[in-house]
């Protein structure tokens, strides 16, 4: 197997709960040795997608292939190679952390060392504590320990950092990178978009069961619109529109009545790669003409911008569909 081989193939997969279509003709691939981010609002179909790829559910149509096999027909092959962290799953509460991992080691074929795993997730000093005495964040870390036990070929993490403090989140991030570097493939869902930006190589964005955008993170971020805003006096508000370069969109907004300074807002929008140029142009323009800039703010296009723009498109599409 080569590093560019698809470990997960989702081909026009459809799944419905009765009349409710949870996954609608969705397609995407996950390459071996990468981190794949699955994004979407609540109810977008992310968890159902993960359940389909673990073979917990059968698609109505389309095909799912994990490690080259159908996970419903050959669940043994998939589970042997997959570590899963669900959004919610329980532990035996009166059993210690160490005993929990020892039990897990007997239920999967992958080998690992309890001490090493506990150290990796920052629970070494909690080894003898019953699970019921752990905090929510510590239990989440135990979840991670179970899912990553024995560095599986495929690791599925469903909202892994929910309930974690910032330090634990960073620890998990570095653990995920480490696992990827060792050759594991990680599928990650989260509501924290900065987490996807920090970890994912490729992503898919889901909306109401549809994969509305997928591909390498860099190319998706490249399509994001960046912005620069500043405030100027009324007499200079029109100066920027007149001489703007073609790649820049300039909007001017009057001050709010409540604004004691009565300053106008200049908003520049551009492709993400032109962001630096736009900041330079604005500063050069304003200093050449003696214009005082107030509250200059530069925002590079983020995944959040892409995500929100797709959501706006989706809302607009639904309005049109409803009207029709």
């Amino acid at each position: 197997m080569t590093s560019t081989e698809s470990l997960v193939l989702f081909d026009r997969v459809r799944f419905a709960y009765g009349d409710y279509v949870a996954v609608n003709e969705s397609s995407f691939t996950v390459q071996r040795g990468t981190v794949f981010g699955l994004l979407g609002t609540n109810g977008a179909g992310k968890t159902t997608t993960l359940e389909l790829l673990q073979g917990f559910r059968s698609p109505v149509s389309g095909s799912v292939r994990v490690l080259g096999v159908d996970p419903v027909r050959d669940p043994g092959r998939v589970r042997r190679a997959t570590g899963v962290m669900l959004q919610e799953a329980g532990f035996f509460l009166n059993v210690t952390v160490e005993r929990t991992l020892r039990l897990w080691s007997g239920l999967v074929d992958r080998r690992d060392d309890v001490g090493d795993v506990l150290a990796r997730v920052g629970l070494r000093d909690r080894a003898d504590v019953p699970v019921q005495a752990l905090s929510g964040g510590e239990r989440r870390r135990l979840d991670v320990a179970v899912a990553t036990w024995g560095s599986p070929e495929l690791i599925v993490l469903d909202e892994p950092t929910t309930g974690l403090d910032p330090a634990s989140r960073r620890l998990l991030w570095s653990h995920v990178r480490e696992l990827r570097d060792q050759g594991s493939t990680v599928i990650l869902t989260t509501h924290h978009l900065e987490e996807i930006e920090a970890l994912a190589d490729t992503i898919a964005i889901m909306d109401r069961g549809d994969v509305v955008r997928s591909g390498p993170l860099a190319s998706i971020l490249g399509s994001a619109t960046a912005s620069v805003t500043a405030r100027v006096s009324e007499q200079h508000a029109g100066a920027f529109s007149a001489s703007k370069p073609h790649w820049l969109q300039v909007d001017v907004a009057p001050p709010l009545r409540s604004d004691p300074d009565q300053r106008w807002t200049i908003s520049l929008r551009m492709d993400r790669q032109r962001h630096q140029d736009a900041v330079g142009w604005l500063i050069t323009m304003s200093s050449a003409r003696g214009i005082a800039l107030d509250l200059l703010r530069a925002t590079p296009g983020t995944l959040e911008d892409v995500f929100l723009a797709l959501q706006d498109e989706s809302v607009a599409r639904r309005v049109v569909e409803d009207a029709a």
Partner: peptide
């Protein structure tokens, strides 16, 4: 307690 759900992700059938 969602133990069944957890065990479902192991190799136990």
């Amino acid at each position: 307690m969602q133990i069944l759900k957890r065990l479902r992700t192991s190799q136990l059938r």
